[in-house]
């Protein structure tokens, strides 16, 4: 029954987050700091992953499409759609759950264990609002941006691999990209990435904020945060696809 207990505490934490900031300037500073941490801190890994994912998709799609009846530009279409629909939002967010999620959980866990959260509370700061809200809002702002960057880089990676492996020319690839393009796919991907961003930031915040014990528990909490976030991302992915596609 601890799961219901956890869900209850999680919801109370979210509710407790919404209170009037004691000082707008300090909250803004914290928000900007979190944006840099989450956004720029993960840009490198996101870029590397998306380029390779795009490249691999091109090569594997070409490998699977052996029929001479299918024009090679179809490869570009398939790469475009899989990158936009699935790889950019879901895979990137799974990776971010590991990178940003574990950072959030261990930062808050450390603050809890070393009584820094208590020190803030004693000063009269609402720690849920000050420590958690800026992280979630920063994630909601930065992660969809990262996903859009991942889309572009993934498609670009596919284009590079297409020519490098002699599968299709860049002009053919570009032609394929424009065929049967459904703008709704991008919107769907963005909806997914907003949901995932919320998961990636709030779940680790929950596990970090409520850590009990010492340094060992911080490690455990951040592992648990990543595992639970990943499962919830995949679950939400399925649910949203079933509902919105």
């Amino acid at each position: 029954m601890t799961i219901f207990n956890d869900i209850g505490r999680y919801l109370l934490m979210i509710k407790g987050m919404f209170s009037k900031p004691e000082n707008h300037k300090m909250y803004w500073k914290e928000f900007v700091h979190q944006c840099t941490e989450i956004g720029f801190g993960s840009l490198g890994i996101v870029a590397i992953i998306s380029v390779f994912i795009g490249a691999v998709s091109t090569i594997q799609t070409a490998y699977q499409l052996v029929s001479p009846l299918i024009p090679p530009s179809t490869i570009a279409q398939i790469v475009r759609d899989t990158v936009i629909l699935e790889f950019a939002p879901t895979l990137v967010c799974i990776v971010l759950a590991g990178v940003a999620g574990s950072r959030i959980a261990s930062e808050l866990g450390n603050m809890r264990v070393s009584e820094q959260i208590d020190a803030l509370e004693i000063m009269g700061v609402n720690t849920k609002t000050y420590l958690i809200l800026p992280k979630i809002v920063a994630a909601l702002l930065m992660i969809p941006m990262l996903v859009v960057i991942a889309m572009a880089l993934g498609i670009w990676g596919g284009r590079l691999a297409g020519t490098a492996a002699g599968i299709l020319s860049t002009s053919m690839y570009d032609k394929g990209l424009l065929e049967f393009f459904v703008p709704y796919n991008v919107i769907f991907a963005l909806i997914k990435s907003y949901v995932f961003s919320f998961i990636i930031s709030s779940i680790p915040a929950f596990y970090g904020y409520y850590v009990k014990g010492g340094a060992l528990e911080i490690g455990r909490a951040s592992t648990k945060a990543v595992v639970v976030s990943c499962i919830l991302i995949l679950f939400a992915d399925y649910l949203l696809s079933a509902l919105l596609l």
Partner: peptide, 29 residues
């Protein structure tokens, strides 16, 4: 609580801030 100052047994300084920023924190807030 805004009228309470507390020194914790384990100090509880903010790791991410330097000494000056730590002490300035309540003033800024």
């Amino acid at each position: 609580r805004k009228e309470i100052g507390m020194l914790f047994q384990g100090s509880a300084l903010f790791d991410s801030l330097n000494v000056e920023e730590n002490i300035m924190f309540p003033l800024s807030m």
